[in-house]
Amino acid sequence: MGMTNVAEETGGLTIRPMDQFIVQPLFGGDVVNWYTPTNVTLWLALTVIAISLVMVMGSKGRAIVPTRAQSIGEVMYGFIYKMIEDVTGKEGLRYFPYVMTLFTFILFANFLGLLPFAFTTTSHIAVTAVLALAVFITVTVLGFVLNGTAFLKMFWISSAPLALRPVLALIELISYFVRPLSHSIRLAGNMMAGHAVVKVFAGFAGAMGAAAFAPVLAVVAIYGLEVLVAAIQAYVFTILTCVYLKDALHPHH
């Protein structure tokens, strides 16, 4: 999380909780082009490095008595494997590498964003929208590849009365195309809101000095909640991916 910016201007207290989400070039300057290395680029790279250290380097020994890194990798592996199997069935296990990659990336990015002076990449729609669109396009293409035009039957509710089926089909179609929007905003919104609240209370704590017991206590409590939210949001994004994947595998259900 970024540093707290507290300034007294004309006798008042100014707290800028959204400053921590500003995209800034790493090597100076004010212009950010598509090729400019920024703080987002840095923390995305650090996320990949952290995943590689834990999941690849930490597990390459495959010891009978696992190390901490191997234990973490095995727990996450078993957790995602069971999630896919429970939601999509055995057919979905062939897509385990993709779902596992999504989960680990979001989880590590969320946790790294909780470090002091860090940048939370998953608080930006530009990042979460790419992840959500990738899921949406993958599931849609997979649905047509596996089922052909029968994939469209998921929009036609055959168990409903005939007069309501066109209306329900339109609603289902709209909700389907809204998926990437809700999928991305849910993650980015939760991460941004929590970090902003922490920064507001941290600003009060910095301004109150020795009398900052209550704001400091609030920061500790909210920070603990943010640790939980970081894990829950990775889980929610992943399980929704599994639900969407199930629609592609079993469009008639």
Rank of each mutant, 00 (worst) to 15 (best):
T121K: 07
T122S: 13
S123M: 12
H124G: 03
H124Q: 12
H124P: 00
A126E: 04
A126L: 10
T128I: 03
A129W: 15
A129D: 09
L131Y: 12
A132L: 08
A132K: 00
A132Y: 00
L133I: 07
V135Y: 02
F136P: 01
F136C: 03
F136G: 00
I137K: 01
I137N: 01
V139R: 02
V139K: 01
T140I: 07
T140A: 05
T140S: 11
G143D: 00
G143W: 06
G143A: 06
G143N: 04
V145H: 03
V145G: 05
N147G: 01
N147F: 03
G148S: 04
T149N: 07
L152S: 07
L152C: 07
L152T: 14
L152F: 15
K153D: 15
W156I: 04
W156N: 09
W156H: 14
I157L: 09
I157E: 10
I157Q: 09
S158M: 11
S158Q: 09
S159K: 08
S159C: 07
P161A: 15
L162R: 15
A163P: 00
L164K: 08
L164T: 11
R165G: 04
R165D: 03
R165C: 07
P166K: 01
V167I: 08
V167Y: 09
V167G: 02
L168N: 02
L168C: 09
A169F: 06
E172F: 15
E172C: 13
L173Y: 14
I174W: 08
I174R: 05
S175T: 13
S175P: 01
Y176G: 09
F177V: 15
F177S: 10
R179T: 14
R179V: 14
R179M: 10
P180H: 13
L181R: 02
L181M: 08
S182H: 11
H183S: 02
H183N: 07
S184E: 03
S184V: 01
S184H: 00
I185L: 13
R186Q: 11
R186E: 10
L187G: 00
A188C: 02
G189Y: 09
G189D: 02
G189L: 08
M192W: 15
A193N: 15
A193H: 14
G194F: 09
G194T: 04
V197G: 07
V197R: 13
K199M: 14
K199C: 08
V200T: 10
A202E: 15
A202I: 00
G203Q: 06
G203K: 06
F204A: 04
A205R: 11
G206W: 06
A207E: 08
A207I: 06
M208T: 04
M208Q: 11
G209Y: 04
A210T: 05
A210Y: 01
A211Q: 09
A211D: 11
A211F: 08
A211N: 13
A212T: 02
A212Y: 01
A212H: 02
A212W: 01
F213H: 10
A214F: 06
A214M: 09
A214V: 07
P215M: 01
P215Y: 03
V216T: 05
V216W: 04
A218F: 00
V220R: 11
A221I: 01
